[in-house]
Design a protein around this nucleic acid. Structure first.
Lengths: 339, 339
DNA sequence: TTCCGGCAGAAAAACGTTTTCCCAAGTGAG
DNA sequence: CTCACTTGGGAAAACGTTTTTCTGCCGGAA
């Protein structure tokens, strides 16, 4: 039982088949498809009809071999695909998919050997570009040995200012939080956040202090409480803050987990949130923010927008219009019941 | 200022360059590289040395064009890249990366149009295979129109039993939980889980009931408590259970969020966990399980192992050794302080 | 010496496009 | 009626491999 001559099982149609059916040469068929060259409209129609009839789809390997473009970009993530890189990744995939570009996923697990390995692989595949995303906002050293391949760093900027980076605007985040608290009448604000050696913690803390100074205020406890990005730390820190400054009327927390820890301690201490004390988190991690009692007011970092912009800037760079430097994406305030 | 003849900037070396440097023909150089054909060891060495010197790397597009293999598999995820698909995806990427195969990421966002679009794209790229992963364990209809491309369904099995599926073994999960509770002396066990229309909830509940019957026991409240996969539901359900059956001595929950909700209610009711009541969750979602007070004993579904196995079975299928059917991956009990 | 077999390596075909170059026929002007 | 141009379309080169086929050459046996 052999397949009928024009059955799909007879193997993918190639351009030569299309040409034969349309009664033209391969070259002409190609031109008809791509709109190049000049020919009678009627001829073009014949080719297009043949394409339709045979369900022809060009072989991308042949195309890529000839043009040198693979219509593929590599997406390197250095920390598994965590809570942070995932939205970035999806944003990028979305923006690229619209342009017929596919995403090759590479996870380095934070391992330099693996990173180098993936890099070779991407270069062997002649990817058109690379997006690098990391776990946190701390700057990272640029990829080495990718001379001619356009690259964009998302979330974690490159340490080289001549590279293209797209990052979250921590200043706008701190600003939204502080201004929101001030606008709702809070003046004795405590700041509890992650490890001091994380850029995210450090930057947000600095901005917070400066913004308060701008309004002639200072932190309720006189200092920033650095710790971990965990609920447990939030709980401990809340106790400490209340001991040092019982009149605190707001907590601005470095992330939603800390905020939730704070909320738990306050609730269990019988302190009304938001009646007596307001809480603002950071990240808008829905699972955390919504499960919190009460649901958290928080700062959304627009991660998928960061991914989208990284993709668009990569497209620009591939098109030879790179805009080097560090580009920021503003945050968004999400008001819920904790403030 | 032109680049030195053998500088990397002089453009990628091609096999012809290698051949010229080694003083052989391209064909011979190719054979030397791939270990095919016969030749004097010395000749092979000369070629290899040239490869080294020029840092030659074969053009994958040319290879693929000729061999018809792309050394690429598509990974279709139907629900963004959520908490469930991510580990599966990483497991698969890991297993495939070892075999020099790269992963093309496609997110359908649950949209059929988008799914079809990605499918065309994958076929145009002549991927060697496809892995499909979904949000939950509910079966899904098979991909349409991929006749000749090997496909494996991970996490969400295909409704067609002749397809290859790799899923989590809900029976083993329920078994580990129930046997652990029985072994630690609990006999009045309540089961709180997600929506009744989710296969995961339904299956685990059924197995739980059957396992208890096996030990001549029944559920503390006489029935399964279906609801949502949320902490809020866990909190409400715990109250209900305690009202109906105050002598309940253990909660087996359908996921870690529910378990955490239960834990919160119990703690706030002054009931000692695990002294008076034990709690077992499901999923081993570290963020939830560890932040819970006390840290949760829970069932780990080995998601990354599911991804790994899906990849291996896909490799088999690509190698023309498919093993159709539904393959299960057993769960693992993680004991912490809640039991 | 002649033949045959085996071996090293060269030459060429093939994979499926795109693009450049070229030719033939038609059109208009002088 | 020719000449120069334009226009439609064909032929062929190119992309960089792999694989198959082919050609000398050498050694050994008759």
């Amino acid at each position: 039982m052999t397949a009928a001559p024009d059955s799909p099982a007879a193997g993918r149609a190639k351009l030569a088949d299309v040409a034969k059916l349309a009664g033209v040469s391969v070259g002409t068929a190609s031109k008809a498809l791509n709109g190049n060259g000049r020919m009678r409209p009627e001829t073009r129609q014949r080719v297009l009809a043949a394409v339709e009839q045979l369900d022809f789809r060009p072989n991308q390997h042949a195309q890529s071999l000839h043009t040198g473009r693979s219509w593929t970009v590599g997406l390197m993530t250095t920390d598994g695909i965590g809570r942070f890189s995932t939205p970035v990744l999806l944003g990028a995939e979305d923006a690229l998919g619209a342009g017929k570009i596919s995403v090759l996923l590479c996870d380095t697990r934070g391992d330099a050997i693996r990173e180098q390995h993936h890099l070779r692989n991407l270069m062997d595949r002649r990817v058109d570009g690379i997006i690098v995303t990391g776990r946190r906002t701390d700057p990272r050293p640029p990829l080495k040995g990718i001379e001619p391949i356009p690259t964009v760093y998302a979330l974690s900027p490159s340490t080289d200012p001549d590279d293209i980076s797209v990052v979250s605007d921590d200043l706008s985040g701190a600003q939204l939080a502080v201004e929101h608290l001030l606008a709702t009448g809070r003046t004795r604000i405590a700041h509890v956040t992650g490890p001091a050696h994380h850029a995210a913690a450090q930057d947000r803390a600095r901005h917070t202090v400066e913004l308060l100074e701008h309004s002639s205020l200072e932190l309720a406890t006189g200092r920033v409480h650095f710790g971990e990005w965990s609920e447990a730390w939030g709980r401990r820190a809340a106790e400490a803050v209340l001991r040092i400054a019982p009149d605190t009327d707001a907590f601005f927390c470095g992330n939603d987990q800390i905020a939730r820890g704070v909320a738990d301690t306050l609730r269990e201490s019988g302190l009304d949130v938001p009646g007596k004390i307001a809480i603002v988190g950071y990240d808008n991690w829905d699972i955390m923010a919504l499960a919190c009692r009460p649901p958290l007011t928080t700062i959304d970092t627009n991660l998928s927008e960061i991914g989208r912009q990284a993709a668009l800037r990569l497209l620009d760079a591939i098109g030879a219009q790179p805009e080097p430097g560090r580009h920021t994406v503003p945050c968004r305030l999400v008001v819920r019941e904790s403030s």
